[in-house]
Amino acid sequence: MQHDDDHHHDHDHDHEHDNRFSEMQARVRALETVLTQKGLIDPAAIDAIVETYETKIGPRNGVRVVAKAWTEPDFAEWLKRDATAAIASLGYTGRQGEHMRAVFNTSDTHNLIVCTLCSCYPWTVLGLPPVWYKAPPYRARAVIDPRGVLAEFGVTLPETMKIRVWDSTAELRYLVIPERPDGTEDLDAAQLADLVTRDAMIGTGLARLPEMAR
């Protein structure tokens, strides 16, 4: 589902039955339920422990996808056409068989991904979702006021830049391919990878400039 910032809402997808828990997700929820009922765990404490790892698990897979798209036009084309297969070719596949779509930033369009439900995040390429991504303010406001949200992330785009907001579903997840910064023609894929941040792949940031890296 796609939301443009002119408030055009495209609802041509059927979302009736797109929530599914994998066997393991459901098992973990069951454990959490029992342990909470018995007073043995406090869900907030669990979240706090998970959060300590969130920042440490870098979205290294996604970074490789972006750097490869920047350096290999054939791969970029494949990524545009069939992101699921192109990403799987690097060995990054979800266990739930979710489909991926890569959305490319251009000189006139900026892409932003959101999910109104916290479970829809491209884990295979971005690792664990940041806390703000799961928080209701981002989920609600990214659709209504993407420019305002971007400004809070320190990203100010020209008025003429179109912003597209992509709402992830359980079956289809998005990855933003940021624009390759100017002045990076001499860098190889490994050096380019240092310029790609997690936020750039969500759309709440831009790729870093070479002088900002390291």
Binding site: Y53, S119, G127
Partner: peptide
């Protein structure tokens, strides 16, 4: 870096519950 690595969030949750218990 020697930190636990998780492929999916439920894995981090299972790890966190175990740590907590």
């Amino acid at each position: 870096e020697g930190e636990p690595a998780f492929a999916e969030p439920w894995q981090a949750e299972a790890f966190a519950m175990t740590v907590h218990l």
